[in-house]
Amino acid sequence: MSEPDLSELRERAENGDTDAADELVQLASEQSDLEELRRLSDGGNATATDELIQLATEQDNLEELRRLADRGNTTAAEQLAEIVGD
């Protein structure tokens, strides 16, 4: 996807287009784009948060899991505890 197309998709998602938001989450997940998933998650997208936790866990990204856990995400806290406990 070209950058202009991606920008348009982001704009649509920011304006409440759930299909655009879902497409962004899917693209970010497929590309292991931690930054995009973080942006979407921080914007309140629960699916992006789930994908972000999964990706951070796969990458043993303790910093990201800790950031999410500090914000009250119990799934991130559980994943963090599991990784640290190993």
Rank of each mutant, 00 (worst) to 15 (best):
D50M: 10
D70M: 09
T74R: 11
D5L: 15
R71W: 07
N73L: 05
D19M: 10
S41P: 09
S41N: 03
T49C: 13
V25R: 06
V25H: 04
G16D: 00
T18K: 12
R10V: 09
G72Q: 01
E51I: 02
E64G: 00
D19C: 08
A46I: 12
A48D: 05
D86V: 08
D42L: 12
A77E: 09
V84N: 01
R67E: 08
D50E: 12
A81V: 11
A77T: 00
R71D: 12
E11T: 10
L34C: 07
R66F: 02
D42R: 12
R10C: 07
R67G: 02
R10L: 11
L27C: 05
L52P: 02
S7P: 04
T57F: 07
D50G: 14
Q54K: 14
E63Y: 00
E64Q: 06
R39V: 11
M1V: 14
T47K: 13
N61F: 04
A81G: 15
E14I: 08
S32D: 10
D70L: 08
E11A: 15
E11M: 13
A76H: 05
R66N: 02
A20L: 06
E14T: 10
R12P: 00
R38G: 03
G85R: 15
R66T: 03
V25L: 06
L52F: 01
R12Q: 15
L9D: 01
E35G: 04
G43N: 07
D5P: 05
E14K: 15
N61L: 00
A77H: 07
E35W: 07
